[in-house]
């Protein structure tokens, strides 16, 4: 299939994926250098999912994500400087240094976290959608989660509530086949995730999560359905993470051959090859985009390095809202 987008938009999709890839490669390096600590869950390999979906959304829409959300924050428009500073634990981070890699928040772009409880974001998304509906706003709440979350009670309760009340939630399952080290077939009696979701009387769609075009087309359809007030929609994006679950994971549970097979389907090189074949990208243009992404990453690292630490006297800040009763 030819890429159904003009050159600027096609290159925009590519660039957005490239920014995520280059930022996260740098994060892995910085983790080794102990600049970034705690847990670090890389999204490398899955970039087409978030880029394809977020380009189908509008500024008034809400985003709820998981602890593997660097790409979501970046693609949504959170400045890379603020993301990198957050990972460094600096005050100028997008969560003031209180959240870290797993808890990127941004009120300006309606990014409601970065939730590190598997399935924890789903009820939240239902509530955000309920508020939009009750306040008469025509917004979509996009809720990202992995296939692992579909074994949680929170998934079932949220799907039921959203369908029962016909709420504007776009459920985006990034199915990367492994819940940490547990393969889908080892944890789910029903491995057809759309069949599972469809039991809540909700429309579903499966898309190749390695193909940004497939994701974007599916997301446009799904988001349109939700925005038109027709109720929630379940989107399964079939994808794969190239890196281990976290930096602590020795990755002993996957075949090397399986990883290589999925790498052959990599979202960046397959898409750029298609664009080149269709005359929508030259090698020079690719190198220029890549250089721009690399430069942005370097600037973000410099920003985070130079940023100030929050004074320890402020430790108890933001437990409660200032001005509220103690």
């Amino acid at each position: 299939m030819t890429v159904p987008y003009d050159k600027p938009f096609a290159q925009k999709l590519l660039f957005d994926m490239l920014r995520i890839r280059r930022m996260e490669e740098k994060c892995a390096e910085l983790y080794g250098a102990q600049k970034i600590r705690g847990f670090l869950h890389l999204y490398i390999g899955e970039e087409a999912c978030v880029v394809g979906v977020l380009h189908a959304l509008a500024p008034e829409d809400n985003i709820v994500a998981t602890y593997r959300e660097h790409g979501h924050a970046l693609a949504r428009g959170v400045p890379m400087n603020a993301i990198m500073a957050e990972m460094f634990g600096k005050r100028s981070g997008c969560s003031g240094g209180r959240g870290g890699s797993m808890h990127l928040f941004d009120a300006a772009t309606r990014l409601y976290g970065g939730n590190a409880i598997v399935g924890g974001g789903l009820p939240l998304a239902v509530g955000l959608a309920l508020a939009d509906r009750m306040l008469g706003r025509r917004a979509v709440t996009a809720c990202f989660f992995g296939e692992g979350a579909m074994a949680e009670g929170a998934f079932h309760e949220s799907m039921n509530l959203a369908a029962l009340w016909r709420l504007p939630v776009l459920f985006c399952c990034e199915n990367n086949l492994y819940a940490m080290g547990t393969a889908l077939a080892r944890s789910e009696s029903q491995t057809d995730l759309c069949a599972k979701a469809a039991s809540y009387a909700m429309p579903t769609l499966k898309a190749d999560g390695m193909d940004v075009v497939a994701v974007h087309e599916a997301a446009k359809l799904a988001a349109g359905h939700v925005r038109d007030g027709l109720g929630p929609f379940f989107l399964e994006l079939q994808t794969y993470r190239y890196r281990a679950h976290s930096m602590f994971d020795p990755d002993l549970y996957r075949d090397k051959a399986e990883i290589e097979d999925w790498k052959a389907r990599g979202p960046l090189h397959t898409f750029s090859a298609r664009l080149k074949a269709e005359g929508k990208l030259t090698e020079e243009e690719f190198l220029a985009l890549d250089a721009r992404a690399e430069a942005e990453v370097q600037a973000a690292v410099d920003f985070a390095e130079a940023a100030e630490w929050e004074p320890v006297q402020d430790l108890l800040k933001d437990v409660h809202t200032p001005g509220a009763a103690p």
């Binding site: 809400n62 409601y112 924890g120 789903l122 009820p123 939240l124 998304a125 239902v126 509530g127 955000l128 959608a129 309920l130 508020a131 939009d132 009750m134 306040l135 009670g153 929170a154 309760e157 949220s158 039921n160 509530l161 029962l164």
Partner: peptide, 19 residues
């Protein structure tokens, strides 16, 4: 429905959303 986790969480989301 009988979904304490779901509807309490939805309450949190609704509060975030301005209700």
């Amino acid at each position: 429905p009988l979904s304490e986790l779901g509807f309490v969480g939805a309450g949190i989301g609704a509060a975030l959303g301005g209700l």
